[in-house]
Computed example of a mutant assay.
Amino acid sequence: MLNSNTTNAEDLRIYQIIDANLDRAREGLRVLEDWARFGLGKEKYVKRIKNFRQILGRNHLEIYKQSRNLIADKCKGLNHREQINRNTSEKIISSNSGRVQEALRVIEEFSRLHNHELSKIASEIRYEIYTIEIDLLSLSKRKNSEEILRENDLYVITDQKDNLLEIIEEILIAGVRIIQYRFKTGTDKDNLQEAIKIKNLCKRYDSLFIINDRIDIALASNADGIHLGQDDLDLITARKLLGFSKIIGISANNESDISNALKDGCDYIGIGPVFETATKKGKKPIGIEKIKTLTKDLDTPWFAIGGIKSNNISYLRRNGFQKVALVSQLMNSEDPKEEAIMILKELSHEN
């Protein structure tokens, strides 16, 4: 309960501090709430954050508001150059989460003697915001990854090459936004080091970096996601290990595999092989018509894979295939950048 027996200058200054920080905390919470609502569409977080705003509003006592102009604030309107660097949703989330956390800490300290109930409330909400910040950042990262999957039609899978980093940068420059790092030989140490370098390249070009099969390498390199085959670790276990900020793709070639992948919450599906391919020797192609049947009601992003080259993409497009995954066509190209540009134009119907 507020102890307001005295109204000396020190009390007024404390009331001003509490008033200013209640405003800051509620403003920051509103930013987080609106992002959860409009940016992410996550009702659960909207309700939680709105509830915090209402609790602080109920405890924003009149005596705090009345103290606002009794002692002049000579530092009003001060800004910092870092404010102009908040140019992504992630930076806005982090800065406003920090704003709320700092404001609540100030309230907690300065209301301890005057209003123990408010001090306790500030402490409880502050610890909740630590978790909410991480959740909102993870959800934002996942949303960005999902948008890249939906908006981009070319998915490139790497092969092991001495100049792999050069090839990847060339195709990233060309406009490719999805790279899967696939390796079958070499030591874990070397593969992880290469994965980290590719991840840094993809980050520079705002592209997705996905690891084939290996969850440990995906976690250690901070990949954006992982691609799993039918004989790899199951999707539910992979999600538990990776968390919900990462995307998970699944290879499938029949109705049952696709149904299970969707039920377990995959983010995209690789369907094939469409044609015969040296990458999957001995695996029988499932063909155009079968894939059309499998995908006719499929809303989740899917990529046709297996034997796809620049000279058969137009044929796939005529049959309604929108997204394709390539391996050898770009990995073995003498000019991977130009090759990638031509394939992207073919996929977008540009001439």
Rank of each mutant, 00 (worst) to 15 (best):
E82K: 10
S145P: 02
G98T: 11
E109I: 11
R81S: 14
E128W: 04
I134H: 08
E147V: 10
I157T: 02
D153C: 08
I93R: 02
L104C: 04
H114M: 12
R126V: 02
L136K: 00
I93T: 08
L136P: 01
L149M: 03
V106F: 11
Y155N: 09
I121F: 02
L149P: 05
V100T: 08
S123N: 13
S119Q: 04
I93W: 01
S138D: 14
S94L: 12
H116D: 14
K91R: 12
D153S: 15
E90W: 00
H114G: 03
R86K: 11
H80M: 13
R99C: 09
N79M: 12
S140H: 04
I107D: 06
E108P: 06
I134K: 15
F110T: 03
Q101R: 15
E82H: 05
I132H: 02
S145V: 00
S140A: 09
H80E: 11
N152D: 01
S97V: 10
A103Q: 09
N87A: 04
G77A: 08
L78K: 13
L137Y: 00
T131G: 07
K91M: 09
Y155A: 04
L104K: 07
R99D: 09
S95Q: 04
A103W: 10
F110D: 04
L113T: 10
I157M: 12
E128C: 10
K143S: 13
E128M: 06
L118K: 01
V156E: 05
N115Q: 06
L136H: 02
L104S: 05
L137N: 03
K141I: 04
S89Q: 11
R126N: 12
E102P: 05
L104P: 09
I148V: 14
I84C: 10
V156G: 04
E151W: 00
K141M: 05
L137G: 02
E102N: 07
R105Q: 14
R105I: 05
R81M: 06
F110C: 05
V106W: 06
S145Y: 11
Q83G: 12
K143W: 00
L118P: 05
S145L: 01
I134S: 13
H114Y: 14
R105M: 08
R142Q: 09
A122F: 05
N87K: 10
N115I: 06
R81I: 14
L113M: 09
K141R: 12
K91V: 09
I132M: 02
E147Y: 06
D135E: 14
Y127T: 14
Q101H: 09
L136C: 03
N87Q: 08
R81K: 12
I129Y: 01
E117M: 05
Y130I: 01
N79G: 08
V106H: 05
S94W: 01
E124G: 02
L154S: 04
Y127Q: 12
R112S: 13
S95G: 12
I157G: 03
D135Y: 03
R81W: 03
E117S: 13
S123T: 09
S123E: 15
R86V: 01
Y130F: 07
S95R: 06
Q101K: 15
K143N: 12
N79F: 07
S119Y: 00
L78Y: 10
S111I: 08
R99Y: 11
T131W: 00
R142F: 06
H116A: 12
S138Y: 09
I157L: 15
I125C: 04
Y130L: 00
N79P: 00
H114N: 13
